[in-house]
Design a binder for these strands. Sequence first.
DNA 1: CTCCAGATTGACTGGTCAGTCAATCGTTCG
DNA 2: CGAACGATTGACTGACCAGTCAATCTGGAG
Lengths: 210, 210
Amino acid sequence: MAAAAKNAPDKRRMILDAAVRVFARQGFHHCRVSDVADEAGVAYGLVYHYFDSKEEILNTLFLERWGIMLDAIGEIDARDLPSRDKLRSVAGFIIDSYRHDPDLMKVIIVEVTRAANSFGAVHLEEIRKAYEGIAAIVEAAREEGTFKSGIPSEFGAMCFYGAIEQLLTGWIFELLPRTDEEYELAKDLVVEAICGGLENGVTGRPAASG
Amino acid sequence: MAAAAKNAPDKRRMILDAAVRVFARQGFHHCRVSDVADEAGVAYGLVYHYFDSKEEILNTLFLERWGIMLDAIGEIDARDLPSRDKLRSVAGFIIDSYRHDPDLMKVIIVEVTRAANSFGAVHLEEIRKAYEGIAAIVEAAREEGTFKSGIPSEFGAMCFYGAIEQLLTGWIFELLPRTDEEYELAKDLVVEAICGGLENGVTGRPAASG
DNA sequence: CTCCAGATTGACTGGTCAGTCAATCGTTCG
DNA sequence: CGAACGATTGACTGACCAGTCAATCTGGAG
């Protein structure tokens, strides 16, 4: 009912939001469903009214957020922008996602993206789509000649995405400073590092030795 | 006894090796200690004769291998080589580690390196040392002027390591082809991508018009 | 007021599994 | 031989927890 939905602020949503906090704090495997229920201020059984299992909660969280990211990547690719700026937008989107909801991104990266044995396997196809979206941007740049043809676009995409995910991991682990300035700076630096390279590209230097 | 060690091929080692296979196949959380014992062809209780807990097995595996990698990075840094070649050696070492024992690297990456909540937290200091080792190489290159001063060395190290780990992840997930040629090619490409950048050299290169 | 349906509750169950332990085996040495 | 000791065995236990379910609540409709 509309009224019901208005009065009781969507319990389903509250459970999802609570799950993000609990999963981020304790890890998916190290928390109980009752922890999620408690965090949401809801009875244990209600969790199972809205979700079939503990895993379904995680799947829902992942798919919700990942879908948004895939849409964003597709939309960015469709813009009329230089390739570097597209990649800058992608980096900006992902870093802003972390900035906006670090717990959620932590859960997605730690519990799904890298969990090759459990959830990673289930969502492999979704994860692959992200790589492909980035690879499409790189491929266009190769075809127009701004990016090196010697580096396959899927390979370049992996490097780019890997660098970003490593940054997020650094923030998650508190190995990198977590300030707004750092986040902003990182957006530019990661693009400069991957597109421009770490080396000083002064002039006339052989781009690829050998 | 020497004789005993000769006759019975070190059961402790057999348990560790079996654990690598089981953890890689089923994941640390999704396997039982009895799976490890069975895989090793050993009685359940013997596992607890050699290890205090299931976790200690994983810790042992991680520390063994990670220590070797840290030593390798330190040794490479000490060599008299151009920075790019040092990074190429580091990439080569890590990729060869995967090539030589993919199960072990899978376990380390999936169960430790990215597991911020459980083992990752425990081994944070060890993990940080790897970043620092790579950062030292980057920093030297910055000081001698071959690498951009605008990109902090820790940042560059994160990008470099992140790109490599993403490649391993691609192989682990079977998102990238797993052949000897790919492994060899990847060593060069990852260095070219991160040091040289994805973009075509800005100088007198033909194709890059407009 | 009654009835219904969906929301909500939390005690309970069934299965799983890490870790224990007492018993047995094999070897060495006196 | 037999004592001594570490290696090895595997049945057992105690705790934990995901998921179930019958009971209760709530609010709208008749």
